[in-house]
């Protein structure tokens, strides 16, 4: 057990060192992109939109923008790191060592979660220049952000296992993750949508995360918190078990 924890610590240390080493590619871009969101959508357009959900538009979109950076960075950290390890074959360092697969998985997920939380913190700091951020429920904010980053780190891991070339690690973020994030209620409340689109929106898992997170800040959500936590929890358990199964069978790693 103690030896496995040392191994976990080593994987985490390797992962964290990796994204700090390339901080210009990993930590700086979210700060710049999200600043642009605050300036364009919050300041310029937001001032004409007026209030949404009983607060200023800027205050309304801030939790969603923070969540967007957490989702993107948790996912992209694991997908790029694990795929690179496969591509450069240094994943073999782990495969030949007596590290149980569950610790390999936890190590990579931990790396993705830590980057997600760090960029979330950076974007939150940036948001303070634009909005007077109030927190309605700290516990909800912390739990939702932790669970969401875990879920998307798992998504990145599964994507990396199946990826055979570099194109494969950008297909999911570009064609699935980005549209779902934009349609996940980051910039609007689904109550503005016609009934049929409101129902379709409920099939988007990101909607539940954004709304639960927004509740933590504003005390306002389109979705019940219980439903949101149940859905996030369900996805995490299913994806964790699937990722572990892939590792145990050596999918994409062993011939």
């Amino acid at each position: 057990m103690r030896e496995n924890l040392v191994a976990l610590q080593s994987i985490l240390s390797k992962e964290i060192t990796r994204y700090f080493r390339i901080w210009v590619q990993t930590l700086l871009p979210p700060a710049i992109t999200m600043t642009l969101y605050f300036v364009i959508f919050g300041n310029l357009i937001g001032s004409r939109v007026g209030e949404m959900g009983g607060v200023s538009y800027m205050a309304y979109i801030t939790p969603g923008i923070i969540m967007m950076s957490v989702i993107t960075n948790s996912y992209s950290n694991v997908v790029s790191s694990f795929f690179s390890a496969k591509f450069q074959r240094h994943i073999e360092e782990l495969l030949v060592a007596p590290v149980p697969n569950i610790y390999i998985l936890l190590g990579y997920i931990g790396g993705g979660v830590s980057r997600g939380l760090l960029t979330g913190a950076i974007v939150t700091l940036v948001s303070l220049f634009f909005v007077d951020l109030q927190i309605h429920n700290v516990a909800v904010v912390c739990i939702v952000i932790l669970l969401t980053s875990t879920l998307f780190a798992l998504g990145g891991f599964i994507n990396a296992v199946f990826a055979k070339k570099f194109d494969d690690i950008s297909i999911v973020p570009t064609f699935i993750l980005t549209p779902l994030t934009y349609l996940g209620g980051v910039f609007y409340t689904i109550t503005l949508l016609p009934d049929v689109w409101q129902k379709i929106s409920l099939a988007n898992p990101i909607l539940y995360m954004v709304n639960a997170f927004r509740y933590g800040f504003l005390g306002y959500s389109d979705i019940s918190l219980t439903v949101a936590f149940s859905i996030i929890g369900l996805f995490i358990v299913a994806m964790f078990l699937f990722a572990l199964y892939l590792l145990n069978t050596g999918k994409g790693l062993k011939s």
């Binding site: 040392v6 080593s10 360092e93 007596p98």
Partner: peptide, 8 residues
């Protein structure tokens, strides 16, 4: 050092 860590 990382490799040693993987061996506990």
């Amino acid at each position: 050092i990382n490799q040693a860590g993987y061996y506990g």
